[in-house]
């Protein structure tokens, strides 16, 4: 069994590796199986450009927040991976696999996908109502299957008990992604926001969708040279 990036010799219990699916900026993602279940291994290999102490701190921080968030989301049946196993020292996390492709690809392949963007907006609201901010909402971090079911991944920058600012930032990060990578959808951001507001449960003690959107608009005004 060989592992990408210096994991040779390390054994992960019950894990049978298949192929490297994706080499992202943060982690190498490998598919395989764990106790017969279809699974994904996310290995956060050390980033050589970061000084080791900072690298270790960030890797640990992000792995543990991801594990905690996934555990919490499982309790609420939120469409996100199940946590199987993790190793903070060696920097990996083993999670369930979802059969789907990034929304990024889906939006590029079928240019009539506004409905999917709206659905994504709704899903984000649901996440926020569970008291979690994602921290890195891009169209690569949400998977979509052939029935248009969405599945949110990559919670390394997430926060439990976020402040209003973090919820607003989630929308801002997605706004930049939609306007820079999916500029063919002219009103993508508005559609996403309409989905976000529509699924507001209006429960007391929860930061309302309109509060988050108005903070988002404030943050949007902070970037350089906005219209």
């Amino acid at each position: 069994m060989s592992h990408p990036n210096g994991m040779e010799g390390a054994t992960i219990p019950m894990w049978i590796e298949d192929i490297v699916m994706h080499k992202g900026a943060e982690a190498t993602v490998t598919s395989g199986s764990w106790l017969g279940k279809s699974a994904v291994l996310k290995l956060r290999s050390p980033r050589g450009y970061r000084t080791p102490k900072l690298d270790k701190k960030l890797t640990r921080q992000r792995l543990s927040v991801e594990a905690r968030v996934l555990g919490r989301l499982q309790l609420d049946n939120f469409p996100s991976p199940s946590l199987y196993d993790l190793d903070l020292d060696n920097g990996w996390i083993l999670i369930s696999r979802f059969e789907g492709k990034p929304l990024y690809d889906s939006l590029n392949e079928d240019l009539n996908s506004l409905e999917k963007i709206k659905k994504f907006g709704k899903l984000i609201r649901k996440l926020h109502e569970f008291g979690i901010s994602h921290g890195d909402l891009t169209t690569h971090n949400v998977l979509i299957d052939k029935y248009d079911n969405l599945h949110l991944i990559d919670f390394g920058l997430a926060r439990i008990f976020p402040e209003l600012e973090h919820l607003g930032l989630d929308l801002q990060v997605l706004n930049e992604c939609l306007t820079s990578s999916h500029s063919e959808y002219e009103n993508a951001v508005d559609i996403m926001l309409s989905g976000y507001s529509e699924s507001d449960s209006k429960l007391p003690d929860i930061i309302s969708a309109s509060e988050v959107i108005s903070r988002f608009n404030e943050i949007r005004g902070r970037v350089r040279y906005h219209a």
């Binding site: 000084t51 701190k57 921290g135 890195d136 909402l137 891009t138 920058l157 990060v173 930049e176 992604c177």
Partner: peptide
């Protein structure tokens, strides 16, 4: 020197 890194806030929010 590498052990003497002073801990500072690390300001990455997604792509920002």
């Amino acid at each position: 020197y590498e052990d003497k890194l002073i801990d500072l806030p690390y300001g990455v929010q997604g792509m920002d």
